[in-house]
Write a protein that binds this DNA or RNA. Sequence first.
DNA 1: AGACTCATGTAACCAGTTACATGATTGC
DNA 2: GCAATCATGTAACTGGTTACATGAGTCT
Lengths: 200, 200
Amino acid sequence: MSITTLGYALLTLLVRKPLSGYDLARAMKNPIGFFWQARHSQIYPELARLEELGLVTAETIAQRDRPDKKLYTITLDGQAVLAQWITEPAKPASERNELLLKTYSLWLADPEKAIKLFQDQKELHQQQLAQYEQILTEYPQATPLSPDSPDFGSYATLLRGLSYERGYITWCHWILTQLESYVDDKRSQNEPPHEHKYSD
Amino acid sequence: MSITTLGYALLTLLVRKPLSGYDLARAMKNPIGFFWQARHSQIYPELARLEELGLVTAETIAQRDRPDKKLYTITLDGQAVLAQWITEPAKPASERNELLLKTYSLWLADPEKAIKLFQDQKELHQQQLAQYEQILTEYPQATPLSPDSPDFGSYATLLRGLSYERGYITWCHWILTQLESYVDDKRSQNEPPHEHKYSD
DNA sequence: AGACTCATGTAACCAGTTACATGATTGC
DNA sequence: GCAATCATGTAACTGGTTACATGAGTCT
């Protein structure tokens, strides 16, 4: 019985502060969701496994007006295991992007519907970007974060998210200019095609 | 029995030209691998399913000096199913990036080892970028590709790959500057910390 | 009365990875 | 002789998703 990546993800959260399974499920949605996701149905069994391995301890907390909860705390063993894992070589992310798959066959699609597809996708990423930019404002300007503070990790991953979303949006935008000029040119065949240069 | 995303990925390749299972496995590594991956053990059963559904036909080809192969050809039904799928809303890619997970807990790591981690990662992405840039040179400059040509899809996905790798490398580089200046400052405590500005 | 949040679990299923299995030909 | 490429499959397992299950308290 060895430790899974999800296990490390949970330790990553618990090393900052003790949390319940429910809290962890929420945290796996919100700050961690951009780079690792998991549902509660996967989290609860994984926590039991971490406890068995002695990497976390659980304490049942009775609450008034709310159901009891189990608060999980990382052990010294857990911290050591996590710290060791961080600097081990990371497996390359196996990308699986449905939109790119669709883009590869875009020539088969009705251009009007393709435009709709990319407009929707662009908007989704613009919303995500707006959320990241909101989070960014919560960080102090001009005060550089030190790599030995927990906030450095949150900030660094946020920067990656911002860059990713900006690149994605730019790319969607470029596709849209291509599709739109194609549709325009089809409508009025006598004019020459416009030029749209792509740069990230 | 419905069609999986891998099924669409295979149709995406077969709509361009008929291929064997072996060819498809290779194509899933090379041009498609950046956004969708699959091993041959998943591909062969999936092809059988596509055949059952009448979306492809198989023809056994005898070869001299080599084992027989089964050449798969997309049917009209297959083309219709694929074309329809393309413009349906795409599910957002569920990101799973181990390096970002590690970055989130970077404060726990030994800085020297962390530098090694990001140098290795940066190099991997630089190699990937170099490969994409090589492929880019094979496209004609200044002649804009029309969205109704199959090459448009290949080119568009390539652009996304280039942008992604460039952003990733820039980000790795920024992390490295942070880690290195942190290590430097620890060595000579009297000098003030350097400034490194991040921009994508 | 109905929906939402807090709270924790299990079961069935599906997608994807690793390993097992076979066998001919080509190049070093 | 040994590894690599071509060629096609199956089996076992693991990671992850969807659905099932329960129940108290709050808000509209």
